[in-house]
């Protein structure tokens, strides 16, 4: 009985790993991206070419602020007043399809080719 459960657990874990790998492989992946597209609350906010160094303060509803910095062909969020800070922790992104997401502010920064 106990062994059977162990087997089921292992199968379940293996299944998730395989699913993650399959999704990973299926996702289209391009080379270096050309621009960072900023979306706030599902609406287009700004597009910045990665070739030019720039800074953009993204203001969202209810006082949300994310500072997007583009330098050396990479985009990163360096500052945010959200409680979770995931967007800052994501670090720099530069290849097509990569994302920086700030859930509390509904901000999505996507790298496009």
């Amino acid at each position: 009985m106990k062994k059977k459960r162990l087997l089921a657990d292992i199968l379940l874990i293996a299944g998730v790993l395989i699913a993650a790998a399959v999704v990973w492989l299926l996702l289209p992946r391009g080379g270096g991206g050309a621009a960072a597209v900023v979306t706030v609350n599902g609406e287009h906010y700004a597009s910045l070419p990665l070739s030019e160094d720039a800074e953009l303060l993204i203001r969202s509803d209810d006082g949300g602020e994310n500072l997007l910095v583009i330098s050396g062909g990479k985009a990163r969020v360096t500052e945010s007043n959200c409680p979770t800070g995931v967007c800052v922790e994501t670090g720099a992104v530069s290849s097509e399809g990569q994302l920086i997401v700030c859930l509390p502010h509904k901000v999505v920064i996507e790298i496009v080719g």
Binding site: V23, G42, G97, K106
Partner: peptide, 23 residues
Amino acid sequence: VACAVLGGIKLAYMLPLLLISGL
């Protein structure tokens, strides 16, 4: 929920990472 709120399936890019970390 994030997909529904933010609109778009681009967030699928985060799925593998989230699957592994949840696991």
